[in-house]
Amino acid sequence: SVNPMAYEAQFFGFTPQTCMLRIYIAFQDYLFEMMLVVESVILKKLDGLPNSKISAFQIRKSTEKFLLFMKERFDQLFSKMEEVLLQLVLSIPPKVLLPEDKVHEQYPYSKEQFQALQGEIHQLQQQYRAEASAGQALRAELEEQKAVQAELEKVLQWFDGLENICREHGTGNFKESFAFLTQNSKKLQDVLKDVEEKSR
């Protein structure tokens, strides 16, 4: 089975196989191009030699023969190189964890643990919302209390006002002064009665 080397791809930004393929194609292109150049140079040289009996076809055959050999060797050598590079250079050993994946080592949460954590967060959010609205209810009651206190203090002030009025008119303690008034009125009645008798 082909190792996709996905982890290496995460690190390098490309899969090692892609990298090797790119190098392989480039090398192969160069080889082919070079051989074409060699052939064209030789043919040009032959043009300068009118008496040579070598045909272009022969040169093409020679080119193909050399290229075929080179291509075989190239493939062999390249696959060896690829094997070594993929193993020693472009691979991440199994026990190595990339820095950006430290979280997976630090937080190996199972699905249940993850859901439990989510549940806990949801619960905290609910709780916070409840506390927030409780706070609002408490502040609302404080406002209400202010209004009620103001009303009750007004009532008391009214009582104070009433008693101030009495005091201002000489009736400090109403009960005593009323008793005093009652006594005086009784005396007055007695005196009145007396006067009437004497006048008869």
Partner: peptide
């Protein structure tokens, strides 16, 4: 692998 001998051998006529 692509030695001169081999090269010359392939292009023997030239």
């Amino acid at each position: 692998a692509g030695s001169y001998q081999r090269f010359a051998n392939c292009y023997r006529c030239f």
